[in-house]
Design a protein around this nucleic acid. Structure first.
Lengths: 107, 107
DNA sequence: TTAATTCATAACCGCTTGGTTATGGGTTTG
DNA sequence: CAAACCCATAACCAAGCGGTTATGAATTAA
């Protein structure tokens, strides 16, 4: 089920959390330990960030023994794209003239 | 000058602020008073939200006597679209096989 | 079994933040 | 000029949040 953009915006508003998600998108599945090594904050802080990202649907976990692997779920970004393009659409639809639109965009 | 997505995410993380911006995108230029009437919070609160949105480049103001009109600047959403699509790109580029990609997206 | 490792949770803390009321500058109206 | 109006800023406050250390459950290694 698609989630509203609220959780997504709130989750991605924090730089540390965004960096963790970005690392998972760039380099694929990683353990909490690996993520902690790059995060610059303590392991419990990373775990809490992962909890927030998981609640927003942005990451998924996979347990393997005492290791926990996390991977990005970039499909969860879809509502964000939807909302953003919808804002642009609302704005654009208020003009009939395309040139007028482009002129205003360069203002 | 393009801004980093950080200010954008932080600015749009608040529901009230996002509603104000959405109202400006939907219905065009509006005064602070008109925005306050729909916001459900006090006028100073709206002014502060507009200040945050302005600092993020998401809105612009136009003074006309004692009225202040605000309008959306949806072009400022571009870094947000860039970041989001970049995340998807990073993630996709880690697979050679397109079918494999699609399968994983449906997981 | 004992010790070490990995991670999540609990408890706590300081800062940020979103809200309020109070106030004042600038502008229009009477 | 005086009064009303529009908005921004200041000052303050409660709540949320991101960080920490401490601890424990679960798993692996010795």
């Amino acid at each position: 089920m698609p989630r509203s953009p609220d959780l997504l915006f709130r989750s991605l508003a924090d730089p540390t959390r965004r960096a963790i998600f970005e690392g998972l998108c760039r380099h694929g599945e990683q353990t909490v330990g690996a993520l902690t090594a790059k995060a610059g904050v303590s392991q419990p802080a990373v775990s809490k960030h992962l909890g927030v990202l998981r609640q927003a649907g942005l990451v998924r976990e996979r347990h393997e023994g005492r290791l926990t692997h996390y991977r990005a779920q970039p499909k969860a970004l879809a509502p964000l794209l939807d909302w953003t393009s919808r804002m642009a659409t609302f704005w654009e639809s208020r003009f009939d003239d395309l040139e007028n639109l482009l002129n205003r965009m360069d203002q």
